[in-house]
Design a protein around this nucleic acid. Structure first.
Length: 423
RNA sequence: GUGGGUGUAGCUCAAGGGUAGAGCGCUGGAUUGUGGUUCCGGAGGCUGCGGGUUCGAAGCCCGUCACUCACCCCA
């Protein structure tokens, strides 16, 4: 029996790493540009942290967590998302006392026991940001604009930004009863799922993909109509900010986030180039969460990006060239050791160099160099070794020059620097 | 958790009851120490696994596992 990777858990193979590095590096660069500091938090935590922050009755907590017992019996869980852990660390280390406002970001793997599908995995990676300590709507705008710039920098195709406001918990409670009053008389006509949701999570009825349910709620009261004045104002400011920055958005009355901690602004960016799982980044405000987890009342806003989905969308054009590679062809009794020596010396001076020790003829060395994509091959046979020289062969135009061994590093550096001709 | 699709060489796929194939890749060669192109050769498979039908199964039937897409839900 061959041992395979676990279902829904993927290797990232070398041929995909250049793209992954681009995706991750732009996240680091942009987040720092926007004034965020990186934080690394554990991949597993006490189960109750997630249960309390995400919400006991959410799907994530109810059936998607990888939960196991520690040796002393404590229930632990592989993190299904990043926000809960960041908030925990924020409180545990009193990060609030150092600045009145904290802007943090993270990149790392998350775990959810879901059925795998296009763009959905059991171990997946997220880039997320969290801002603690301000309820200014402009901070919502800043966070959205970071997300938007991240995606447009990477040239992701066919993006749509959806925004909505789900108000304060009070607003929501009020809205939920209005919605229930509206739905109740026709409850029998809704799909089975929605009938269940009617009791467990009524807001999600708006989100249902069954067309009939959608039609039934078409004339239902909307969240926005029910918002309190302050919530409504907040949302208007967010929209004005987006307009000011010329970030195109669509108000999506049915946009409800799946995690319980959200409040006020919610947003989501989708791309039509993905399969059914077309959300690449989403987030919103969660003004109540910090207090909920035992901290002082602290407004907060953030987002999370699914990096696997981003990777699928990044066009190959944004991926840079691989560094120039020099290959050493050392052969013969005297050529081999000289080759090894030069190989090491070049690497010490920072020139990316490789050699194929299996090859024992010049032909084999050159074939190997070609496969490695070498720009130049350095030939050292016994004759050259004797004369303390090497032949540098330009793999593109086949031109060769003889150079004393001692001068090789400098010659190559000049050439690589000019990115042009050695000769 | 529920449904559909697909499992044949490292990869992409043929063969639809009668000896398991191609392209790409890998590897060796085409006279001396010069790569990519071309030409010739080679390796590589219990056709996912188990059972059944049959003189005979990669192909049909049943089961099972894996992969995949979709539902649910989410990034």
């Amino acid at each position: 029996m061959k041992i395979r990777a676990i279902k829904g858990i993927k290797d990232i193979l070398p041929e995909h790493m250049t793209k992954w590095n681009v995706v991750e590096q732009s996240a680091h660069r942009l987040a720092r540009c926007f004034g965020f500091s990186e934080i690394r938090i554990p991949t597993f935590e006490q189960t109750q942290l997630f249960a309390r922050s995400i919400g006991e009755s959410t799907d994530v907590v109810e059936k998607e967590m990888y939960t196991f017992q520690d040796r002393d019996g404590t229930s632990l869980t592989l993190r299904p998302e990043g926000t809960a852990g960041v908030v925990r660390a924020y409180l545990e280390h009193n990060l609030a006392t150092q600045f009145s406002m904290r802007k943090l970001y993270y990149i790392g793997p998350m775990f959810r026991h879901e059925r795998p599908q296009a763009g959905r995995f059991r171990q997946f990676h997220q880039f997320g940001v969290e801002v603690f300590g301000t309820e200014d709507p402009y901070m919502d705008v800043e966070v959205i604009s970071l997300l938007w710039q991240y995606f447009t920098d990477l040239q992701l195709p066919e993006l749509t930004l959806y925004i909505n406001s789900i108000g304060t918990p009070d607003d929501r409670q009020q809205y939920i009863s209005q919605l229930q009053t509206y739905v109740k008389p026709q409850l029998q006509q809704f799909c089975e799922n929605c009938q269940r949701r009617f009791h467990t999570n009524p807001l999600r009825i708006l989100d249902c993909k069954v067309p009939r349910c959608n039609t039934l709620t078409e004339k239902a009261p909307t969240l926005l109509e029910t918002l309190s004045d302050t919530s409504r104002k907040h949302f208007t400011h967010v929209q004005n900010g987006l307009k000011l920055l010329e970030i195109p958005y669509t108000i999506h009355h049915r946009l409800v986030r799946g995690l319980d901690y959200y409040s006020q602004t919610t947003f989501e960016i989708t791309s039509s180039h993905l399969g059914a799982q077309n959300t690449i980044g989403a987030g919103g405000r969660y003004d109540g969460l910090v207090k909920n987890l035992g901290g002082p009342p602290t407004p907060a806003v953030g987002f999370a990006v699914g990096l696997e989905r981003v990777n699928i969308l990044v066009p190959s054009a944004v991926i840079g060239d691989t560094p120039p590679l020099v290959v050493i062809a050392g052969f013969g009794e005297k050529g081999r050791p000289k080759g090894l020596k030069l190989l090491t010396r070049l690497r010490q001076t920072g020139i990316c160099t490789d050699a194929d020790f299996r090859a024992n003829s010049l032909k084999a060395h050159l074939r190997s160099a070609d496969k490695l994509g070498a720009l130049a091959t350095i030939i050292i046979g016994d004759e050259e070794a004797q004369k303390e020289v090497v032949i540098i062969r330009n793999m593109q135009d086949k031109k060769q020059v003889e150079v004393p061994i001692a001068l090789v590093p400098d010659q190559l550096k000049i050439w690589i620097h000019q990115n042009g001709n050695i000769f």
